[in-house]
Design a protein around this nucleic acid. Structure first.
Lengths: 197, 197
DNA sequence: GCTTATTCGGATCAGTGCTCCATGTAAGTG
DNA sequence: CACTTACATGGAGCACTGATCCGAATAAGC
């Protein structure tokens, strides 16, 4: 890759990151190009579609979440690991408003640039879930896809301005549904006598 | 209203209904106008925004769901009424792919044409929930807004092609989280819930 | 300094929701 | 019935979207 091309590419990624943080993943590609002092065509050659751009932007985050799952697998109890990882996943999406719809689309579209990352993420969650199920801490009638769907749904809640204030609370509700009663007293303050409404 | 205007309005509503059933609520307004053999401007005068069109189209469904809640309040046990109504709500949205985002937006936007319908729906759910909570059948740390959010999230799951196959199962998971474990035993004495208004 | 392969971005295209306004027409009056 | 008038109509146009083309600019290799 030519030096000027590489410079433009990096610059575009940086600008795209801030633009998406401000306006969500649906931000106009033209805006990103404008803010990067670059033609729209240049942006679109480096990243042929919006998904390709997001893939380049989010890949490191995905990898971090996957790695985190691996660490938790050995460092925490099964139920703590599962719930804590779920919280990380849902929390992470708040930085990228609107990303959930793209992820839900990408996980079944093998052509999507985000497909591989989503599948890996689902697999990491499935391992944590299986571990918790093996010790009887999580209900046995859900699988990795269910977990992925629940993460997506909770993340979507956080994306909706009108529902976001409840997102944290509803996370606890859903988490308590995943864990069996044997594991419902988890470490992250799940036991919550006072309601904070 | 002039006779020709009324005819066009009714025809537009019918065409919009089938178009939305086929392509979801994001269908192009130009398409609807074309299929109705009508100018785009005509569609937009009768229904100034997409939300106004959907409001006219969905209002009867909303009313039916609200009425259903009222019936269930007297015809079924608190927990059956709540769960059955939730199922109806989530199931209904499958006919209008994409409507959940609009509802989530509308419920806090008092200017939205759908606002009133959404608020009414939330209130109906809140009554069913309060009734179940009064008899100890539902966990006490959620309210009508939480319920609305959970309905929206489950409906959103059903909207995503990749996650829809799990939607029914995940409904059960979430429903079990709303109901207390006491839901298994019988209800016995029913304290009459605080009368509506 | 020259050649050549790459990169660039303005012009353009089809699509969107939406607005304006000249035309056509239904409804009410003589 | 004829006439007027208030209203409904829809094509043309606006600003915007993601995406494509292609002549011009430019960096890399010699």
């Amino acid at each position: 890759m030519r030096a000027d091309a590489r410079k433009n590419r990096d610059h575009l990624l940086a600008v795209a990151g801030t633009a998406i943080a401000e306006q969500g993943v649906d931000v106009s590609l033209r805006d990103i190009a404008r803010r990067a002092d670059v033609g729209l065509a240049t942006l679109l050659r480096h990243f042929p579609t919006r998904e390709a751009l997001l893939d380049a932007l989010l890949r490191t985050s995905f990898d971090e979440l996957t790695a985190k799952a691996g660490e938790l697998e050995t460092s925490s109890s099964p139920e703590d690991a599962l719930v804590s990882w779920l919280r990380d996943c849902v929390g992470w999406t708040t930085e990228y408003r609107g990303v959930t719809v793209l992820m839900a689309t990408a996980i079944e579209d093998t052509e999507s640039a985000l497909h591989a990352s989503c599948v890996t993420l689902r697999a990491a969650g499935a391992r944590l879930l299986a571990r918790a199920q093996a010790t009887g801490m999580a209900r046995s009638d859900i699988d990795g896809t269910d977990l992925f769907a629940l993460i997506a749904a909770l993340a979507w809640l956080g994306d909706q301005p009108s529902l976001a204030p409840r997102a944290d609370h509803l996370f606890d509700v859903v988490a308590s549904a995943i864990l069996t009663s044997a594991g419902s007293g988890d470490a992250q303050g799940e036991r919550r006598p006072p309601d904070r409404r």
